[in-house]
Design a protein around this nucleic acid. Structure first.
Lengths: 166, 166
DNA sequence: TATTGTTATACTCTATAACTATA
DNA sequence: TATAGTTATAGAGTATAACAATA
């Protein structure tokens, strides 16, 4: 099932083993599949999957300011403005004043936004499971856990690996 | 370590547990980190990480025609034309005639392209490991394996999950 | 008639720069 | 002076449509 780790005579530069270990290809392929699967579920939600993520964060009271939200989602603050404009127009979130800093805006879900997120949650979960259908249930949980650990860790320190940049 | 699965009184709609299980956020975050880490390694390679993937495929003799390559990489065939134009200009690949179909082009690496891919392989692997640094070595292998299994499986059948679309 | 590849064009997404208002 | 947010503009990346050559 795994690509061979030992060099073969017809593969002197290790291309073959590199194929199966290409993290970039696998990540890109899975994210593309995710977008396809989730796209229809999120079709009528402003911002799509990202709009859902904002609603979820805001639902936990963890959204914070627009800048914090932009950092969490990995987009520029200007993108966040457009995104929140759309969501506010749709009545899903509201911009509240932050006590103590009149520049910043606190992002909070409206009751309608909460309801929408709760409605989508189940359908999203199903779409996600379809993406992971080639894993057995136990492996799906394991995969989710590992992926989440990687995602949380990427903002942390990036220690030099031994044997790199010799 | 895991988000709570049981409903809590201050989280009636399950937002909190949904946070840690959001596959889309985790995938997006990890892919973004991957691009940041790998970007500098692939800076001078036409097509970046995608150019590397093409070289790797072609190095194994698995690249096939431009259309097959485009499908594997998940891009439009027109994008593939531009991409291969750049790589051909840089002397990394060449378009060969396919015996039996004079419309199609077989993509093959030049010796220079092979050497470039081999040179980048080690540095790429190091960059990838930095992205995965929050996992222990054993978990990194496990994660790579699971991710690859998902990626390979996404093109297969998408069976209906029980409990979905009721 | 359908398919492979190319070219020209248009669109989408995102970032950069300049601005206002606060700190 | 620096920061949060907005707006206008420009850029990168991608897709759509039309085309030529071939099946």
């Amino acid at each position: 099932m795994n690509a061979a780790r030992t060099p073969r005579s017809d593969d002197p530069d290790g291309s073959a083993s590199a194929l199966g270990d290409d993290l970039g290809w696998a990540l890109g392929t899975v994210l593309r599949a995710y977008r396809n699967a989730v796209g229809e579920v999120m079709a009528d939600l402003p911002g799509g999957a990202r709009g859902y993520q904002i609603l979820t964060m805001a639902g936990c009271g963890l959204a914070g300011t627009q800048l914090a939200l932009a950092g969490h989602l990995g987009v520029d603050r200007t993108v966040m403005t457009y995104l929140l404009d759309d969501m506010e127009r749709a009545g899903l979130i509201e911009r509240r004043c932050v006590p103590g800093d009149r520049r910043a805006k606190q992002i909070a879900p409206t009751p309608c936004g909460r309801a929408k997120a709760a409605e989508l949650r189940q359908r999203l979960r199903c779409a996600e499971e379809r993406v992971l259908h080639s894993l057995e249930p136990a492996d799906r949980q394991r995969f989710r856990q590992l992926l989440r650990q990687v995602a949380i860790g990427v903002d942390g320190p990036r220690p030099q690996q031994p044997g790199c940049e010799p």
